[in-house]
Design a protein around this nucleic acid. Structure first.
Lengths: 118, 118
DNA sequence: CACTTGTTTCGAAAACTGTCAAGATAGACG
DNA sequence: CGTCTATCTTGACAGTTTTCGAAACAAGTG
């Protein structure tokens, strides 16, 4: 699995927003946020990330939704291509887990100084 | 300005992901992430949030982009409706500022325990 | 081979992005 | 006051991208 290269953010865009984002950095971060910008994918990620063992089988991810298998598979692919999760096949089942480093980068990006104001 | 009610997140979805997101919470957070999921809007927000005085005039937001005025205005509207920024007209100009509370909520949402793993 | 689990392919409906034209609001000038 | 100019926003439109399901495909088990 993980055939695509993980589009990890370059150094320099993992810090809180204290200066304007460069065009390239913005494009990369936007890909990740776009992946998070869908209720189904956000719930999928929360299901994966909140799992005690750190891993979830796809079969457990399909049940909570009113969607077909292929659709869930598609959403998981988007999360994978955004570098937010990764997966591995073991026997019949495929297991997914979250990538905390990547989530941490995005979290830091939004962690604004709160009061730059006068 | 701010004619729409700010869709602030309900209590309960501002904490790190330790349990699956409820459907309603996910929908609301997804709206915000979707707003961030575009390079132009992400740069707009960074321009606004990184401003020393805490406020930016729209005229300063148009120049850095290769886009028409109405297009920037549309993107700003999306950010506004997502509750990420707000604005006010003073005289001829319209000033925008970021809403740190909202950004902090989203940041917290992605701040994963890092190692729930075994 | 039959059966199960997931992914990929393909097509249709819905949503998004950007531009032009027109509308709203404020200040300046006569 | 009326009109002109400048700054933004809104509305309407074309072109592109997403989203989802049905069917076909791939991989593993018994």
């Amino acid at each position: 699995m993980s055939k695509q290269s993980l589009p990890l953010l370059d150094a320099g865009c993992c810090a809180p927003i204290t200066e304007p984002l460069a065009e390239a950095d913005a494009a990369q971060a936007a890909t990740a946020f776009k992946a998070l910008g869908d209720p189904v994918r956000l719930r999928l990620l929360s299901l994966i990330a909140s799992r005690a063992g750190g891993e979830v089988c796809v079969c457990d991810l399909t049940a909570p939704f009113d969607l077909s298998g292929p659709t869930i598979s598609h959403h998981l692919k988007v999360l994978r291509q955004a570098g937010l999760v990764d997966c591995e096949r073991r026997g019949t089942w495929v297991y997914y887990w979250a990538i905390p480093e990547r989530l941490g980068q995005l979290s830091a990006l939004l962690d604004i100084p709160a009061a730059v104001a006068p």
